[in-house]
Amino acid sequence: MIVTKSREEIERMAAAGAIHTRTMKLLAGKIREGVTTAELDAAAEKYIRSQGAIPSFKGYRGFPGSICASPNSMVVHGIPGPYALAKGDIISIDIGVTYDGWVADGAVTFPVGPVTPVAEKLLDTTKRSLFAAVDACQAGNRLGDLSSAVQTVVEAEGLSVVRSLVGHGIGRDMHEDPQVPNYGEPGRGPLLEPGMVLAVEPMVNAGRHMVRMGDDGWAIYSQDGSLAAHFEFTIAILPEGPRILTPWHEEGIGE
């Protein structure tokens, strides 16, 4: 069942989103060669808790980290640890924040110094596909309209949408209905109604779309070892248009 939110509830989610955005900005300033993903995780948890909020991922279904940190061919769900960032890496940072009982979720994939042309294209395309989805988050559209928007941008560049991983509704719980695929046909699926809040998260491989599970039971990699990128917003559907509740882009993050 899709649970719509009132204006007041969306404002409370936006408060969680503001903490999320500040956390992402903090980590953006720390991403450099030699920094470990465990150090990024510790910084995120310390800051989130200093704001009176909770890292949503910590302990969620047994996940041990406060963030997901997924380098290179790892698509999502990387457990922070001793991995040290190297020049030329790309690293997806996915953060969830729970504040006053409401959840905000978002992700950015960062370059670590100069990266290859393939990586540059992957990051640019994945981010553009997210903004195409935002544009499609209009009341009266169908879920397939935003899914198709992502797919169209990605496949026009010869890249692949990961099909076995999806976005989701979000609110008091991290994962609510509906599932939000990053591919599909326009005009299909549930109607987008005012008060719906979606975590929209294109996950894109530079190679083929298939993925595999890592040995730790959490990390998911591109099956062919190609680079992967992940960008995400929490988006509220409003009568006047979409509202991004985790507006990391307004801080210049991901540019």
Rank of each mutant, 00 (worst) to 15 (best):
I2K: 01
V3R: 11
T4S: 09
S6I: 11
E9T: 05
M13P: 06
T21F: 01
R22Y: 04
T23K: 07
L26I: 08
L26G: 04
L27I: 10
A28E: 12
G29N: 09
K30S: 14
I31H: 10
R32V: 04
E33H: 10
E33V: 14
T36W: 05
T36M: 08
L40V: 10
L40Q: 06
D41A: 09
I48C: 02
I48H: 00
R49S: 14
G52C: 01
G52I: 03
G59V: 09
Y60R: 15
Y60K: 12
R61C: 12
R61A: 15
R61Q: 15
F63P: 04
F63E: 04
P64F: 15
G65M: 09
S66H: 06
S66W: 00
C68D: 03
P71L: 06
N72K: 13
V76P: 00
V76L: 13
P80G: 14
A86D: 06
A86F: 10
D89P: 13
I91D: 01
V97P: 02
G101P: 14
G101L: 14
W102M: 14
A104Q: 04
V108H: 00
T109M: 03
G113A: 06
P114Q: 12
V115S: 15
T116Y: 01
T116R: 10
P117V: 04
P117Q: 12
E120V: 00
K121L: 05
L122M: 07
L123D: 01
T126I: 00
L130G: 02
D135W: 06
A139F: 05
A139Q: 13
G140E: 08
G140A: 11
N141R: 07
R142H: 10
L143T: 14
G144V: 13
G144M: 07
D145Q: 14
D145P: 06
L146I: 11
S147F: 10
S147Y: 09
Q151R: 03
Q151Y: 05
Q151S: 08
V154N: 07
A156Q: 12
E157Y: 09
G158Q: 12
V161T: 12
R163N: 08
G171W: 04
G171V: 14
R172G: 13
E176G: 08
E176C: 11
P178L: 10
V180G: 09
V180E: 04
P181F: 11
P181Q: 11
N182K: 08
G187L: 14
G187N: 13
R188E: 12
L191N: 08
L191V: 13
E193A: 14
P194W: 11
P194F: 13
A199Q: 13
P202V: 00
V204G: 02
A206Y: 00
M213Y: 06
G214R: 03
A219S: 15
Y221T: 13
G225P: 09
L227C: 07
A228P: 00
A236E: 07
I237N: 05
I237Q: 04
P239E: 11
E240F: 09
P242F: 01
P242H: 06
R243G: 05
R243C: 04
R243D: 08
L245F: 05
G252T: 13
E255M: 07
